[in-house]
Nucleic acid binder design. Structure first.
Lengths: 322, 322
DNA sequence: CATTGTGTGTAAGTTTCCTACATTCTGCAT
DNA sequence: ATGCAGAATGTAGGAAACTTACACACAATG
């Protein structure tokens, strides 16, 4: 198939050579369905001939995206109208609609590997290379889909109006995330401290007053000492937020749960991907707090930046501290 | 358009109701071109009528994906063959090929926002919502592209063969990441400790022997105390690794630099996205260490899991500790 | 066994895309 | 200014792809 070489049209003015931008921030405004999942979900209800079409599609997606109705029918040993019926049976308008959706679906599939992916064979030498990245991305997507921005705003309001904020996390990763939460919020002028000593957690929880705030971080929502200290804070009428797994004891125990279920491949040697999700939540929350506390947040950051700048030479816009 | 209701075929055996999986890990094996960029890049070389087609497509991508050749031609006020020619001029086989690629292209566009995105106007109320996610994803992509898996394996070898490992990080986020590195490596039986006190850092660095290891974490690569302690460790013949920015003083000072340049939008109220990149590097490294130290790593994890399990009721496969 | 309903293919119709040719326009040379 | 050649584009018809209608076969039920 020969392609004609594109040529310059010499009569055009230079200004007319610039392509217009796509309209708006999001040029495409329709949802992208996961058609492969739809095929699998509908499989049990398909008729026998339609199943043979499904088998062909699932067995060779690359072929199916480009193939005509007739080519698919031939491979599946069915009639052409049966292919149309298959497309209708899985929820598409027809073959054309199916093709577009299939093409889109595989792009999504390229970017997000399914959970429970078997371990990489280490073809580049670094074990689980693709898994680590895929799951980090899945974790971010899970946050995007399951966290309501209104909850972020509400949480930021609780932080901004609290006289003091305590952050609790135990077990290693949650400890580090609690520390990171402190590290983010103090920069905006929030009186915040994180604790990893279960006794200090309970003692400081007992000093809280109405309007104060506890942010509890737990990947499983089941860490006993975090739950106990958070319940104690509630007893003393402090507000409570949890960053945790959905439908967990901790999620049920607090005023506002920022919870997310992160699907991941269970390899005992691989760190958990939920830290990416939790870090994203902390970033969303701290950004919202920063904006909520303007212009004071800016003043606090200006002071900190000025201090760090004097302590060390560096670019003005690089991260504050590290 | 009526859709026929999917029905159960009662003559099928239950085992035949399960859909087969798509073949292989990556079911679709063709590259996904960015057709919108191709249109913009080819714009200057397009003929006048073809440009009118391009204008229509860029002005309304949603319409264009689903519209027939005739519908596009009508809107652009050109003939139908001109639409075919337009598709050929931008590198596609024809209109069908163009359509598939356009559908795919918009999915990619949906998932990656460009760096230096202007601030969101807060349409969902949570400030910089999209920026936080886009930049986290960009950070992960930056790691994927700039880190050599061989360096991960080499770093894991240095960890595995060290008698002790020190992790240094200062400034808040690097502190938490250093702690997280400790939290990951100790689980495989590595003798590892992290320090955030600059005096303790130097003192412990002075105790190192040849073959010991320092992992230094710094977003900018310019934190003075981290640099000094790392240099001191080198002086005492310890091996040194840095997780830092490329071409920085720290990157130059160590034996092996795992460095990555993370493009991000500079908003003083938004946390830095490089933490996602650094966390991914730590995860890759710790996974590689775990695999390198098999079967001892498994034994260590078994003991830790057993301890945590007895301390708390939970699912067997959930994250170790938090 | 007869009847009814479901599943599927064949054949024909419709839609969409592509090719071939004719016409118009533009640029260059004389 | 005129003529010629090449490029651009549209019209008309052909080919490809998809869909609809109807016939036939098979399965289930009474």
């Amino acid at each position: 198939m020969s392609k004609r070489k594109a040529r310059q049209s010499t009569s055009d003015k230079n200004a007319e050579n610039e392509a217009p931008e796509e309209t708006g921030g999001e040029a495409y405004n329709k949802p992208v369905p996961d058609i492969l999942s739809q095929i699998k979900d509908s499989y049990a209800e398909l008729r026998p001939a339609e199943r043979r079409v499904a088998n062909i599609v699932l067995a060779d997606v690359t072929f199916s995206v480009d193939a005509s109705n007739a080519e698919i029918a031939k491979r599946a040993k069915v009639s052409e109208p049966t292919v149309t019926r298959f497309c209708r049976a899985i929820g598409c308008d027809g073959v054309r609609d199916f093709k577009l959706k299939l093409a889109q679906s595989v792009v999504v599939g390229r970017l997000y590997l399914s959970p429970n992916l078997p371990p990489e064979t280490g073809e580049n030498g670094s074990p689980l290379w693709n898994v680590v990245f895929a799951e980090a991305r899945n974790a971010l997507t899970a946050v995007e889909r399951s966290i309501d921005p209104k909850d972020i705003i509400q949480a930021a309001e609780l932080v901004a109006s609290a006289q003091q904020v305590l952050v609790f996390g135990l077990g290693g990763s949650s400890t580090a995330l609690a520390q990171e939460t402190q590290n983010r919020l103090f920069r905006y002028g929030v009186l915040v401290s994180s604790h990893a000593d279960p006794y200090v957690m309970k003692m400081t929880a007992a000093t809280l007053k109405p309007g104060d705030l506890v942010i509890a971080i737990s990947g499983t929502g089941r860490t006993r000492e975090v739950l106990e200290a958070t319940t104690l804070a509630k007893h003393y009428r402090a507000n409570t937020i949890a960053i945790t797994a959905p439908d967990s004891e901790l999620a049920e125990a607090v005023d506002l749960a920022l919870s997310v279920d992160v699907p991941e491949f269970q390899d005992i040697l691989k760190p958990t991907a939920s830290r990416y999700a939790f870090l994203a939540i902390i970033d969303l929350l701290s950004t919202a707090v920063g904006y909520r506390l303007e212009p004071n947040a800016h003043e606090m950051l200006r002071r900190i930046k000025y201090t760090v700048l004097n302590h060390r030479k560096g670019k003005v816009l690089e991260p504050l501290g590290d």
